[in-house]
Structure formats: C-alpha cells, structure tokens
Design a protein around this nucleic acid. Sequence first.
DNA 1: CAGCCGTGGAA
DNA 2: TTTCCAAGGCT
Length: 352
Amino acid sequence: MPDPVMSVEMLPHITNKILAHYDANARLLPWRSPPGTPAPDPYRVWLSEIMLQQTTVAAVKAYFDYFTQRWPTVAALAAAEDADVMAAWAGLGYYARARNLLACARVVAQDFGGHFPSDEAGLRALPGIGPYTAAAIAAIAFGRAAPVMDGNVERVIARLYAIATPLPAAKPQLYQHVAALTPQHRPGDFAQAMMDLGATICTPRAPLCGLCPIADACQGRLAAESFPVKAPKLAKPHRQGRAWWIEADGAVFLIRRPEKGLLGGMRALPSCDWQGAEGAPPLEGAWHRLGDVDHVFTHFRLTLGVDGLRLRDRPQMALLGEWWPIDRLAEAGLPTLFNKAAKAAQKGMRMT
DNA sequence: CAGCCGTGGAA
DNA sequence: TTTCCAAGGCT
C-alpha cells in the first residue's frame, strides 16, 4: 500500500495549491506579468533570467531597469558596442554572462529575425542558456509545459519528498518530481510560483512552514532545514596579489583583461596574476605602497596590495591599454575588486 | 563530473 | 568575523 501522501492523485492537488497561493501572493517584479495575464515580452524574460542566474532579485532590479531602458529590444542590444555592455554589467558579477548575453542577442537578431525560439531545445542551443534558463523562458514567455528546476525548486521538492540523496546527485530524481507536478495549463505561473515559494516561505534557513500552502503534504516538514542534503564545502584558499595605479595628467592607466577567465573582458588596473610570485611592475619608477584591499571570489579570497606611481606626463607605454580620466572613473565599468583598489589608490595618492 | 566564475546581504 | 548562498552555465 503506497503512502497516500505520495499517491498520483495528490499531484494535481499540490499543483493547484501552489498556483492558488501564487494567485494571492505573487511578487510584483519589473520583468514579471501578474498571474493569469498575458506573458511578458520574451526579450525581457530572457534578460531577467540571465541576470538572475546565481544573483539576488534585489541586485538585479537596477540593472534590469537600466538595460531595458537603454536597449529596449534584442535588436538594440545586438547592435550595442561590446565595451558599453560590459561596462553596464560591471558590479553584477559572473561576467561571462555579459559576453554570452551579447553573443545570444546577435544570434537572435541576425539568425532568427529578432524572435527567440519558443521551445526548450531551440533556447538551449543559444549561448548562456542552460537547462534551467531554457525551461524558464519556454514556460514563462511561451507557455510551454517545461519543468523548471532552479535552486529554489530543488529545495522545495527535496523537502516535499524528504529526499535523502545529496546534491548534485539528487538532481535527476528531483527533476522527475518537478516534471510530475508541472501542469499543462499555466506552466509559467507554476514555475514562478515554485520559485516564489522557495524565496519567501521555503527558505534555506528558518522556513515559514506555518504559511506554506503544501505543508500538509510535506514529508520533510519536521526537519525542513536538513533538506536538501549537500556535500560539504572546501575552505577557500587565501591568495595575495598586487595591482598598479599609474597616474599622469589626471588620468589612470587601465587595461582590458583577457576574454576568458576571472573578470574576463572587463577593464582593470594592471596587476600580477595572484598565483605566487609578485611579478614586476609595468614601469620603473618611485612606487608608493598605497594600501591593501580584500575581496572574496567564488573559490578563493584575495588580498590585493596597490602600488602607485605619479608621472609628469603620459609615457609611450608599450603595453596595450588606455588612459582614463580619473574624475570619470565610474564610467569605466570596473568590476568591484578594482573599484575597491581604485578607491584605496586615490586615498593613498592624496597622502603622497 | 568537478572546478571555475562575482557580488553583497543576512544571520 | 565567518559562513552561507541567490532564478546556473561552461569546460
């Protein structure tokens, strides 16, 4: 005799409870249309989903507003300068997303007449769109019954069925449950309902089970915080590095980092590689120690020492780079690490 | 598959 | 201060 809570007959009941809760409690977000209303512009759905990858709603809002105002259509974005898009993305992190965003926009504009593919497979083939994002766009923008599984959904399902298998090995099992719950009608609302549920009630810590519309069906409720089970994480190594602030005639020397790798494609101060040996500064001269900045990346922590050099006038530098007016440095689109370094450098230079 | 890839807010 | 981690994708 199967557990009645697990019976197939319960699945529509759970789905309907989740949708009804969404109808009454949906978060109003700039890229979202209210429950039951026509789907939003696929361009806005796509842009928001890319920005939201591993990024909080609060952090995305201002970037989404700026991008949609400056580039209202996928064709407009496709026609943008690379440097403008990278600078506009500065501070949001995971900069490969910005490079893939442009590549994707150009494929859609040039090869698909400005129309996004409407099914998972077609979306999945575009740069920057993986399994989650393809399903989310198909469901939210095109009404396809694609099972959508992000971190929120993984947590909700792992608790609902008390899945003991650790992530990421449990993903196929979790996905099967999501697929079984995803309705043919309103799949987009269902996906967003599940993510809202995970973000506002079925939270990683201190979940609000008393407010949950499916608490009665939840097999993990008594130990909700123990799900999903995850493999333990490794400690982050601490690296040291050095960056060089070269100032001349009210401008600072900036480079552009290689397209691939850490902070790829972004403007930056010249620096060593932060691996081991410090390396030589790009110029000989009377360098000053200006200060240290600390920064945490995904897989290591960095203490970056900043050295400064003030020159009478701009030298003929053999290195590739550009001189950027210091009073307009905010427009350079430096990633956060180098914004910290620039701030420390300017403070240090004032005291030399 | 596992490592790489940012950032800032919350507890 | 430390830890966790948020609408993942790429290699």
